[in-house]
């Protein structure tokens, strides 16, 4: 059942991205282009998503466990560290440069565009590199940054 939930949520998430036109890099870049051809649509995408998610999460937080799982995987960290800020800044630069964040890039992949394929392969390499760095730092007992 967990597999069905994941699969269905993935399809619905992707369709939401398509309906919202987030799979169009030009649309995303125009949202970020406040000095040029600014298109504020993506504010409404985020707003619409939060409007549904926030009250639902508030309700779910009071529940003991999910329908088909042992526990809720609510994130527990509350500290603000440098890694969070530098990572997000690096992500944002790439987001502006390519007009894709991870979800829309994967959703657009079956369109078989060479550009999307190149972007997704590079993105996977980037995530992999970060995984490797985490593993290495953990083995060395180093503080993560």
């Amino acid at each position: 059942m967990r597999a069905v939930v994941s699969l269905f949520a993935g399809v619905l998430f992707g369709i939401g991205l398509i309906v919202a036109d987030m799979t169009n890099p030009a649309k995303v870049q125009n949202f970020l282009d406040i000095a040029g051809t600014w298109d504020p649509s993506l504010m409404f995408v985020m707003g619409g998503a939060i409007l549904v998610t926030m009250p639902s999460f508030m309700y779910l937080k009071k529940q003991e466990k999910p329908l088909f799982g042992e526990d809720f995987g609510w994130p527990s960290r509350t500290d603000l560290d440098l890694k969070l800020v530098t990572g997000s800044a690096i992500f944002g630069l790439g987001w502006g440069l390519g007009g894709f964040c991870p979800g829309p890039a994967l959703t657009a992949l079956p369109s078989i565009g060479t550009g999307t394929f190149l972007f997704v392969m590079s993105m996977l390499a980037g995530i992999w590199a970060s995984n490797l760095q985490d593993t290495r730092n953990a083995n060395l007992g180093k503080v993560q940054y």
């Binding site: 309906v19 036109d21 549904v52 809720f72």
Partner: peptide
């Protein structure tokens, strides 16, 4: 369409948390 698309994204996020207890972070 942005609001509707966003609403669907939110719905998918809620389904994943309510069903499996996972955060929909791609």
């Amino acid at each position: 369409s942005a609001l509707i698309g966003g609403g669907l994204i939110g719905l998918a996020t809620v389904i994943l948390m309510a069903g499996n207890g996972r955060i929909a972070g791609i």
